[in-house]
């Protein structure tokens, strides 16, 4: 299992953000994306997850092998923690949600409706979803937002466990997860130069 990205270019709102980006992530590896705001981290992750088309370049791994987690957790306020998680498990053809609840320390909250959770607890539930998808590559956009130090450590352990089972993680984050083995990829060098022939609107110039 390997994700190989070759000479990728992606754009947001017709404006090219990233170009000439190549990297690989193999099973058991974690790659952290770094870059200032607006450098295209979210755009890159959405492109990899198949939510928007790339301008050019190749992505070796089909979106069906990844799972994507962003700022919004996809939780329904009136459903309980267990119902929310069971739903995503069922969508991905899985049954057992107990290990995921335990791993993110949510077992005690299982029957609580999601609307009564704190922001950090919601985030933990959103991240527990990763465990029930059964997919090997996690594509994470700022996974640690609103998590306290203990929860960050908890999540780091979950990621480490996922890597140990041959999974991989690709994440954009500002916080150091304490994953010593994670490689860091700076996006700044791949900032798209202009004028480029990549954007559609250039045809009008």
């Amino acid at each position: 299992m390997e994700l190989r990205v070759t000479d990728l270019a992606c754009a947001r709102g017709g404006l090219p953000l990233i170009e000439g980006l190549s990297f690989t992530v193999a099973g058991g590896e974690a790659l952290v994306l770094r870059g200032p705001n607006g450098s295209g981290k979210t755009t890159l992750l959405r492109t990899l997850a198949g939510l928007q088309p790339a301008l050019s370049g190749e992505i070796s791994c089909p979106p069906e092998q990844m799972t994507y987690a962003a700022h919004a957790d996809g939780l329904k306020a009136t459903l309980s923690v267990a119902e929310n998680l069971s739903f995503w498990a069922a969508i991905h053809g899985q049954r057992d949600i107990a290990p995921a609840l335990d791993a993110m320390n949510l077992a005690d909250l299982a029957e609580r409706p999601a609307q009564s959770l704190s922001a950090g607890q919601k985030r933990r539930l959103g991240l527990a979803r990763l465990l029930v998808t059964g997919r090997w590559l996690w594509v994470l956009d700022e996974p640690t937002v609103s998590l306290d130090a203990d929860s960050v450590a908890l999540f780091a352990a979950v990621v480490r466990g996922h890597l140990a089972q041959g999974g991989a993680a690709l994440m954009a984050t500002h916080i150091d997860l304490g994953l010593a083995e994670a490689r860091v990829l700076e996006l700044a060098p791949y900032k798209a130069g202009l004028p480029a022939d990549l954007g559609f609107d250039e045809a009008f110039l």
Binding site: L51, A70, I91
Partner: peptide
């Protein structure tokens, strides 16, 4: 509603 809470993104990347 699914668009606001991010479910739609997740459903779009799901096996369905």
């Amino acid at each position: 509603l699914d668009h606001e809470d991010g479910s739609l993104d997740l459903l779009a990347t799901s096996p369905i």
